[in-house]
Design a binder for these strands. Sequence first.
DNA 1: GAGCGCGAGTAGACACTATCTACACCCACC
DNA 2: GGTGGGTGTAGATAGTGTCTACTCGCGCTC
Lengths: 196, 196
Amino acid sequence: MTDQDRDLRARLVAAGVELVARDGVNALGLREIARHAGVSHGAPRRYFPTHRELLAAIARHGFGKLTDVLAGADALTATTGADARTRLTALARAYLGFAAANPGMFELMFRHDLLEGSGAELRRTTLPLFLTFAGLVAEVHPRCDDPTAATAALWANLHGLAQLRAWGSLRLVTGGEDVDPLLRAALDAHLGPATR
Amino acid sequence: MTDQDRDLRARLVAAGVELVARDGVNALGLREIARHAGVSHGAPRRYFPTHRELLAAIARHGFGKLTDVLAGADALTATTGADARTRLTALARAYLGFAAANPGMFELMFRHDLLEGSGAELRRTTLPLFLTFAGLVAEVHPRCDDPTAATAALWANLHGLAQLRAWGSLRLVTGGEDVDPLLRAALDAHLGPATR
DNA sequence: GAGCGCGAGTAGACACTATCTACACCCACC
DNA sequence: GGTGGGTGTAGATAGTGTCTACTCGCGCTC
Protein backbone atom coordinates (compact mmCIF):
# COMPACT_ATOMS: atom_id res chain seq x y z
CA MET A 1 0.00 0.00 0.00
CA THR A 2 1.62 3.19 -1.18
CA ASP A 3 1.08 6.72 0.01
CA GLN A 4 -1.26 7.25 -2.91
CA ASP A 5 -3.57 4.52 -1.75
CA ARG A 6 -3.96 5.52 1.87
CA ASP A 7 -6.76 7.90 2.58
CA LEU A 8 -5.90 11.52 2.30
CA ARG A 9 -6.35 12.20 5.99
CA ALA A 10 -3.44 9.94 6.93
CA ARG A 11 -1.37 11.06 3.96
CA LEU A 12 -1.67 14.70 4.97
CA VAL A 13 -0.58 13.96 8.51
CA ALA A 14 2.33 11.89 7.21
CA ALA A 15 3.33 14.71 4.88
CA GLY A 16 3.25 17.13 7.78
CA VAL A 17 5.37 14.83 9.92
CA GLU A 18 7.97 14.62 7.17
CA LEU A 19 7.96 18.35 6.54
CA VAL A 20 8.29 19.35 10.16
CA ALA A 21 11.14 16.90 10.62
CA ARG A 22 12.98 18.22 7.57
CA ASP A 23 12.25 21.96 7.56
CA GLY A 24 10.74 22.84 10.93
CA VAL A 25 7.45 24.29 12.04
CA ASN A 26 7.54 27.16 9.54
CA ALA A 27 7.33 24.68 6.66
CA LEU A 28 3.88 23.54 7.76
CA GLY A 29 1.83 25.83 5.56
CA LEU A 30 -1.47 24.38 4.44
CA ARG A 31 -0.59 24.57 0.77
CA GLU A 32 2.89 23.23 1.40
CA ILE A 33 1.52 20.16 3.14
CA ALA A 34 -1.01 19.64 0.35
CA ARG A 35 1.75 19.94 -2.28
CA HIS A 36 3.90 17.46 -0.40
CA ALA A 37 0.97 15.06 -0.27
CA GLY A 38 0.38 15.53 -4.01
CA VAL A 39 -3.07 17.09 -3.86
CA SER A 40 -4.49 20.52 -4.53
CA HIS A 41 -4.59 23.18 -1.87
CA GLY A 42 -8.30 22.79 -1.36
CA ALA A 43 -8.26 19.08 -0.69
CA PRO A 44 -7.28 19.15 3.00
CA ARG A 45 -10.39 21.19 3.75
CA ARG A 46 -12.50 18.07 3.26
CA TYR A 47 -10.88 16.45 6.32
CA PHE A 48 -9.56 19.39 8.31
CA PRO A 49 -11.89 22.39 8.24
CA THR A 50 -9.04 24.68 9.13
CA HIS A 51 -5.29 24.78 8.95
CA ARG A 52 -4.97 24.59 12.72
CA GLU A 53 -6.93 21.38 12.92
CA LEU A 54 -4.47 19.80 10.51
CA LEU A 55 -1.57 21.02 12.63
CA ALA A 56 -3.29 19.66 15.72
CA ALA A 57 -3.60 16.25 14.05
CA ILE A 58 0.11 16.32 13.23
CA ALA A 59 0.93 17.25 16.82
CA ARG A 60 -1.33 14.44 18.03
CA HIS A 61 0.76 12.09 15.94
CA GLY A 62 3.81 13.47 17.72
CA PHE A 63 2.31 12.80 21.13
CA GLY A 64 1.57 9.26 20.06
CA LYS A 65 5.14 8.83 18.95
CA LEU A 66 6.44 10.23 22.22
CA THR A 67 4.24 7.84 24.13
CA ASP A 68 5.61 4.96 22.11
CA VAL A 69 9.21 6.03 22.65
CA LEU A 70 8.75 6.36 26.40
CA ALA A 71 6.82 3.13 26.68
CA GLY A 72 9.52 1.37 24.68
CA ALA A 73 12.29 2.76 26.83
CA ASP A 74 10.51 1.77 30.01
CA ALA A 75 9.71 -1.71 28.76
CA LEU A 76 13.38 -2.20 27.98
CA THR A 77 14.54 -1.35 31.50
CA ALA A 78 11.58 -2.92 33.26
CA THR A 79 12.29 -6.35 31.82
CA THR A 80 15.84 -6.25 33.17
CA GLY A 81 14.40 -5.98 36.66
CA ALA A 82 15.76 -2.46 37.10
CA ASP A 83 14.63 -0.42 40.08
CA ALA A 84 12.36 2.61 39.85
CA ARG A 85 15.25 5.07 39.95
CA THR A 86 16.91 3.42 36.94
CA ARG A 87 13.64 3.27 35.06
CA LEU A 88 13.00 6.96 35.71
CA THR A 89 16.48 7.77 34.46
CA ALA A 90 15.83 5.85 31.27
CA LEU A 91 12.49 7.57 30.81
CA ALA A 92 14.04 10.97 31.33
CA ARG A 93 16.77 10.24 28.81
CA ALA A 94 14.16 9.03 26.35
CA TYR A 95 12.15 12.22 26.81
CA LEU A 96 15.17 14.44 26.20
CA GLY A 97 16.23 12.19 23.36
CA PHE A 98 12.88 12.55 21.65
CA ALA A 99 13.00 16.32 21.95
CA ALA A 100 16.54 16.40 20.57
CA ALA A 101 15.79 13.99 17.72
CA ASN A 102 12.54 15.72 16.71
CA PRO A 103 13.05 19.40 17.47
CA GLY A 104 10.45 20.64 14.99
CA MET A 105 7.80 18.21 16.16
CA PHE A 106 8.62 18.91 19.80
CA GLU A 107 8.14 22.60 19.20
CA LEU A 108 4.87 22.06 17.36
CA MET A 109 3.58 19.87 20.17
CA PHE A 110 3.90 22.67 22.68
CA ARG A 111 2.80 25.59 20.54
CA HIS A 112 -0.50 26.27 22.20
CA ASP A 113 -1.16 29.27 19.99
CA LEU A 114 -1.53 26.84 17.09
CA LEU A 115 -3.19 24.07 18.98
CA GLU A 116 -5.64 25.78 21.31
CA GLY A 117 -9.13 24.50 20.93
CA SER A 118 -8.10 20.92 20.37
CA GLY A 119 -5.79 21.27 23.34
CA ALA A 120 -7.96 19.27 25.71
CA GLU A 121 -7.76 16.16 23.61
CA LEU A 122 -4.05 16.63 23.04
CA ARG A 123 -3.35 17.04 26.70
CA ARG A 124 -5.36 13.97 27.58
CA THR A 125 -2.73 11.99 25.72
CA THR A 126 -0.09 13.04 28.20
CA LEU A 127 -2.00 11.79 31.23
CA PRO A 128 -1.08 8.08 30.98
CA LEU A 129 2.54 9.11 30.59
CA PHE A 130 2.29 11.20 33.69
CA LEU A 131 0.76 8.36 35.67
CA THR A 132 3.63 6.07 34.75
CA PHE A 133 6.02 8.73 35.99
CA ALA A 134 4.01 9.18 39.16
CA GLY A 135 4.04 5.47 39.95
CA LEU A 136 7.81 5.31 39.68
CA VAL A 137 8.31 8.50 41.70
CA ALA A 138 6.10 7.05 44.42
CA GLU A 139 8.33 3.98 44.45
CA VAL A 140 11.43 6.10 44.92
CA HIS A 141 9.79 8.30 47.55
CA PRO A 142 7.54 5.92 49.46
CA ARG A 143 6.69 8.41 52.21
CA CYS A 144 6.36 11.56 50.12
CA ASP A 145 3.40 13.60 51.32
CA ASP A 146 2.53 14.97 47.88
CA PRO A 147 3.69 12.58 45.17
CA THR A 148 1.68 14.32 42.47
CA ALA A 149 3.46 17.61 43.10
CA ALA A 150 6.83 15.86 43.22
CA THR A 151 6.11 14.14 39.91
CA ALA A 152 4.88 17.28 38.24
CA ALA A 153 7.96 19.16 39.45
CA LEU A 154 10.24 16.49 38.03
CA TRP A 155 8.30 16.42 34.77
CA ALA A 156 8.56 20.20 34.49
CA ASN A 157 12.28 19.91 35.05
CA LEU A 158 12.68 17.47 32.19
CA HIS A 159 10.50 19.60 29.97
CA GLY A 160 12.45 22.72 30.83
CA LEU A 161 15.74 21.01 30.06
CA ALA A 162 14.43 19.86 26.70
CA GLN A 163 13.05 23.28 25.85
CA LEU A 164 16.08 25.28 26.91
CA ARG A 165 18.38 22.95 25.06
CA ALA A 166 16.30 23.26 21.92
CA TRP A 167 16.45 27.02 22.33
CA GLY A 168 20.22 27.01 22.78
CA SER A 169 20.24 28.60 26.20
CA LEU A 170 22.01 25.76 27.93
CA ARG A 171 24.93 25.87 25.53
CA LEU A 172 25.35 29.54 26.24
CA VAL A 173 25.23 29.13 29.96
CA THR A 174 27.12 25.91 30.57
CA GLY A 175 29.52 26.22 27.67
CA GLY A 176 28.85 22.73 26.30
CA GLU A 177 26.22 20.95 24.31
CA ASP A 178 25.91 18.11 26.77
CA VAL A 179 22.75 18.10 28.86
CA ASP A 180 23.66 14.90 30.63
CA PRO A 181 25.29 16.62 33.62
CA LEU A 182 22.21 18.80 33.96
CA LEU A 183 19.92 15.82 33.68
CA ARG A 184 21.89 13.99 36.35
CA ALA A 185 21.79 17.06 38.59
CA ALA A 186 18.03 17.27 38.13
CA LEU A 187 17.51 13.58 38.85
CA ASP A 188 19.78 13.75 41.89
CA ALA A 189 17.80 16.71 43.17
CA HIS A 190 14.38 15.16 42.68
CA LEU A 191 15.14 11.52 43.41
CA GLY A 192 18.11 11.78 45.74
CA PRO A 193 21.73 11.05 44.84
CA ALA A 194 22.26 8.00 42.69
CA THR A 195 23.12 4.90 44.73
CA ARG A 196 26.13 3.20 43.27
CA MET B 1 6.32 63.47 25.10
CA THR B 2 3.58 61.56 23.35
CA ASP B 3 3.79 58.43 21.28
CA GLN B 4 3.73 60.54 18.17
CA ASP B 5 6.90 62.37 19.18
CA ARG B 6 9.08 59.41 20.01
CA ASP B 7 11.01 57.98 17.14
CA LEU B 8 9.27 55.31 15.19
CA ARG B 9 11.63 52.58 16.29
CA ALA B 10 10.52 52.86 19.92
CA ARG B 11 6.90 53.40 18.97
CA LEU B 12 6.82 50.20 16.94
CA VAL B 13 8.28 48.19 19.79
CA ALA B 14 5.80 49.76 22.21
CA ALA B 15 2.94 48.94 19.84
CA GLY B 16 4.14 45.35 19.65
CA VAL B 17 4.35 45.10 23.43
CA GLU B 18 0.79 46.32 23.75
CA LEU B 19 -0.52 44.02 21.04
CA VAL B 20 1.16 40.90 22.37
CA ALA B 21 -0.14 41.65 25.86
CA ARG B 22 -3.67 42.14 24.60
CA ASP B 23 -4.05 39.65 21.76
CA GLY B 24 -1.12 37.25 21.94
CA VAL B 25 1.69 36.34 19.60
CA ASN B 26 -0.59 35.86 16.59
CA ALA B 27 -1.53 39.54 16.66
CA LEU B 28 2.06 40.57 15.90
CA GLY B 29 1.71 40.85 12.14
CA LEU B 30 3.93 43.48 10.57
CA ARG B 31 1.03 45.44 9.15
CA GLU B 32 -0.92 45.10 12.38
CA ILE B 33 1.93 46.57 14.41
CA ALA B 34 2.34 49.39 11.89
CA ARG B 35 -1.40 50.12 12.02
CA HIS B 36 -1.32 50.16 15.80
CA ALA B 37 1.60 52.60 15.70
CA GLY B 38 -0.29 54.79 13.23
CA VAL B 39 2.05 54.46 10.26
CA SER B 40 1.89 52.79 6.88
CA HIS B 41 2.88 49.18 6.44
CA GLY B 42 6.13 50.12 4.73
CA ALA B 43 7.40 52.37 7.48
CA PRO B 44 8.84 49.72 9.81
CA ARG B 45 11.18 48.58 7.04
CA ARG B 46 13.28 51.70 7.57
CA TYR B 47 14.24 50.50 11.07
CA PHE B 48 13.69 46.76 10.93
CA PRO B 49 14.71 45.24 7.60
CA THR B 50 12.52 42.25 8.25
CA HIS B 51 9.50 41.31 10.29
CA ARG B 52 11.52 38.97 12.44
CA GLU B 53 13.93 41.69 13.46
CA LEU B 54 11.01 43.71 14.74
CA LEU B 55 9.75 40.71 16.68
CA ALA B 56 13.24 40.19 18.07
CA ALA B 57 13.32 43.79 19.25
CA ILE B 58 9.98 43.29 20.98
CA ALA B 59 11.27 40.10 22.62
CA ARG B 60 14.41 41.96 23.68
CA HIS B 61 12.16 44.45 25.41
CA GLY B 62 10.56 41.52 27.19
CA PHE B 63 13.91 40.21 28.38
CA GLY B 64 14.74 43.64 29.70
CA LYS B 65 11.46 43.72 31.57
CA LEU B 66 12.07 40.26 32.99
CA THR B 67 15.51 41.35 34.15
CA ASP B 68 13.99 44.35 35.86
CA VAL B 69 11.31 42.29 37.56
CA LEU B 70 13.82 39.77 38.86
CA ALA B 71 16.29 42.43 39.95
CA GLY B 72 13.50 44.25 41.73
CA ALA B 73 12.33 41.13 43.51
CA ASP B 74 15.85 40.27 44.59
CA ALA B 75 16.58 43.77 45.78
CA LEU B 76 13.46 43.65 47.91
CA THR B 77 14.50 40.48 49.72
CA ALA B 78 18.20 41.27 49.82
CA THR B 79 17.67 44.47 51.77
CA THR B 80 15.80 42.58 54.47
CA GLY B 81 18.90 40.52 55.09
CA ALA B 82 17.24 37.36 53.86
CA ASP B 83 19.36 34.27 53.27
CA ALA B 84 20.15 32.85 49.86
CA ARG B 85 17.40 30.28 50.03
CA THR B 86 14.77 32.94 50.66
CA ARG B 87 16.14 35.13 47.89
CA LEU B 88 16.05 32.24 45.44
CA THR B 89 12.47 31.54 46.41
CA ALA B 90 11.53 35.13 45.74
CA LEU B 91 13.35 35.07 42.40
CA ALA B 92 11.60 31.88 41.40
CA ARG B 93 8.21 33.30 42.29
CA ALA B 94 9.01 36.44 40.35
CA TYR B 95 10.00 34.37 37.30
CA LEU B 96 6.78 32.38 37.39
CA GLY B 97 4.84 35.55 38.11
CA PHE B 98 6.26 37.26 35.06
CA ALA B 99 5.40 34.32 32.85
CA ALA B 100 1.85 34.22 34.22
CA ALA B 101 1.33 37.97 33.95
CA ASN B 102 2.75 38.22 30.42
CA PRO B 103 1.89 34.96 28.71
CA GLY B 104 2.09 36.34 25.18
CA MET B 105 5.40 38.03 25.73
CA PHE B 106 6.78 34.97 27.52
CA GLU B 107 5.85 32.82 24.57
CA LEU B 108 7.38 35.24 22.10
CA MET B 109 10.60 35.36 24.10
CA PHE B 110 11.12 31.65 23.69
CA ARG B 111 9.88 31.17 20.15
CA HIS B 112 13.19 30.50 18.50
CA ASP B 113 11.57 29.92 15.13
CA LEU B 114 10.71 33.61 15.10
CA LEU B 115 13.86 34.85 16.75
CA GLU B 116 16.65 32.74 15.31
CA GLY B 117 19.42 34.80 13.84
CA SER B 118 19.25 37.48 16.46
CA GLY B 119 19.17 34.74 19.05
CA ALA B 120 22.73 35.18 20.19
CA GLU B 121 22.15 38.73 21.33
CA LEU B 122 18.88 37.83 22.96
CA ARG B 123 20.41 34.99 24.86
CA ARG B 124 23.25 37.15 26.06
CA THR B 125 20.68 39.10 28.00
CA THR B 126 19.88 36.06 30.09
CA LEU B 127 23.46 35.53 31.21
CA PRO B 128 23.58 38.12 34.02
CA LEU B 129 20.33 36.69 35.34
CA PHE B 130 21.85 33.26 35.33
CA LEU B 131 24.93 34.46 37.19
CA THR B 132 22.79 35.93 39.94
CA PHE B 133 21.05 32.61 40.25
CA ALA B 134 24.37 30.79 40.29
CA GLY B 135 25.78 32.93 43.09
CA LEU B 136 22.80 32.23 45.30
CA VAL B 137 22.81 28.52 44.51
CA ALA B 138 26.49 28.38 45.42
CA GLU B 139 25.62 29.98 48.75
CA VAL B 140 23.00 27.33 49.45
CA HIS B 141 25.25 24.50 48.29
CA PRO B 142 28.73 25.57 49.41
CA ARG B 143 30.37 22.24 48.61
CA CYS B 144 28.54 21.40 45.41
CA ASP B 145 30.98 19.93 42.88
CA ASP B 146 29.22 21.37 39.83
CA PRO B 147 27.34 24.54 40.78
CA THR B 148 26.80 25.52 37.17
CA ALA B 149 24.96 22.30 36.42
CA ALA B 150 22.95 22.61 39.62
CA THR B 151 21.95 26.16 38.72
CA ALA B 152 21.05 25.28 35.16
CA ALA B 153 18.98 22.35 36.38
CA LEU B 154 17.09 24.59 38.78
CA TRP B 155 16.60 27.24 36.10
CA ALA B 156 15.28 24.62 33.71
CA ASN B 157 12.87 23.51 36.38
CA LEU B 158 11.47 27.00 36.83
CA HIS B 159 11.24 27.46 33.10
CA GLY B 160 9.47 24.15 32.66
CA LEU B 161 6.96 25.02 35.36
CA ALA B 162 6.23 28.35 33.69
CA GLN B 163 5.90 26.79 30.27
CA LEU B 164 3.72 23.87 31.29
CA ARG B 165 1.47 26.14 33.29
CA ALA B 166 1.07 28.47 30.34
CA TRP B 167 0.24 25.47 28.22
CA GLY B 168 -2.36 24.19 30.68
CA SER B 169 -0.72 20.84 31.32
CA LEU B 170 -0.31 21.33 35.04
CA ARG B 171 -3.98 22.03 35.55
CA LEU B 172 -4.83 18.82 33.78
CA VAL B 173 -2.40 16.75 35.77
CA THR B 174 -2.64 18.18 39.26
CA GLY B 175 -6.27 19.20 39.12
CA GLY B 176 -5.69 22.76 40.31
CA GLU B 177 -4.42 26.02 38.92
CA ASP B 178 -1.95 26.57 41.75
CA VAL B 179 1.69 26.06 40.85
CA ASP B 180 2.90 26.98 44.28
CA PRO B 181 3.02 23.40 45.60
CA LEU B 182 4.98 22.41 42.52
CA LEU B 183 7.33 25.33 42.93
CA ARG B 184 7.93 24.43 46.56
CA ALA B 185 8.52 20.80 45.59
CA ALA B 186 11.05 21.94 42.99
CA LEU B 187 12.83 24.26 45.38
CA ASP B 188 12.90 21.59 48.09
CA ALA B 189 14.38 19.16 45.62
CA HIS B 190 17.09 21.46 44.33
CA LEU B 191 17.90 23.43 47.47
CA GLY B 192 16.99 20.95 50.19
CA PRO B 193 13.90 21.12 52.41
CA ALA B 194 13.01 24.57 53.66
CA THR B 195 14.39 25.26 57.12
CA ARG B 196 11.75 26.77 59.31
C1' DG C 1 17.97 83.30 0.47
C1' DA C 2 17.51 79.70 -3.33
C1' DG C 3 18.67 75.17 -4.63
C1' DC C 4 20.02 70.75 -3.58
C1' DG C 5 20.33 66.34 -1.24
C1' DC C 6 18.83 63.10 1.75
C1' DG C 7 16.26 60.73 5.22
C1' DA C 8 11.46 59.41 6.53
C1' DG C 9 7.24 57.77 5.47
C1' DT C 10 3.63 56.61 1.69
C1' DA C 11 1.58 53.75 -1.65
C1' DG C 12 1.39 50.36 -4.94
C1' DA C 13 3.14 45.91 -6.94
C1' DC C 14 4.26 41.15 -6.28
C1' DA C 15 4.14 36.57 -4.75
C1' DC C 16 2.33 34.01 -1.34
C1' DT C 17 -1.06 32.49 2.19
C1' DA C 18 -5.75 30.57 4.36
C1' DT C 19 -10.41 30.32 3.57
C1' DC C 20 -14.57 29.92 0.79
C1' DT C 21 -17.30 28.53 -3.29
C1' DA C 22 -18.55 26.47 -7.58
C1' DC C 23 -17.59 22.77 -10.34
C1' DA C 24 -16.08 18.06 -12.44
C1' DC C 25 -15.46 13.39 -11.65
C1' DC C 26 -16.04 8.61 -10.31
C1' DC C 27 -17.88 4.93 -7.85
C1' DA C 28 -21.78 2.70 -5.50
C1' DC C 29 -26.40 1.80 -5.43
C1' DC C 30 -31.22 1.40 -7.00
C1' DG D 1 -28.07 2.47 -16.89
C1' DG D 2 -29.06 6.47 -14.80
C1' DT D 3 -28.40 8.97 -10.46
C1' DG D 4 -26.53 10.87 -6.12
C1' DG D 5 -23.09 11.81 -2.94
C1' DG D 6 -18.58 12.04 -1.56
C1' DT D 7 -13.84 13.42 -3.24
C1' DG D 8 -10.67 16.41 -5.15
C1' DT D 9 -9.88 20.58 -8.50
C1' DA D 10 -9.62 25.35 -9.50
C1' DG D 11 -10.65 30.02 -9.16
C1' DA D 12 -11.96 34.09 -6.19
C1' DT D 13 -11.13 36.85 -2.19
C1' DA D 14 -8.93 39.10 1.49
C1' DG D 15 -4.83 39.47 3.86
C1' DT D 16 0.28 38.94 4.51
C1' DG D 17 5.64 40.16 4.13
C1' DT D 18 8.84 42.03 1.10
C1' DC D 19 10.42 45.12 -2.46
C1' DT D 20 10.42 49.40 -5.16
C1' DA D 21 9.18 53.88 -6.81
C1' DC D 22 7.58 58.27 -5.18
C1' DT D 23 6.73 62.35 -2.41
C1' DC D 24 7.46 65.48 1.08
C1' DG D 25 10.01 68.34 4.32
C1' DC D 26 14.05 69.62 6.67
C1' DG D 27 18.93 71.15 6.87
C1' DC D 28 23.07 72.23 4.59
C1' DT D 29 25.67 74.59 1.11
C1' DC D 30 26.75 78.10 -2.40
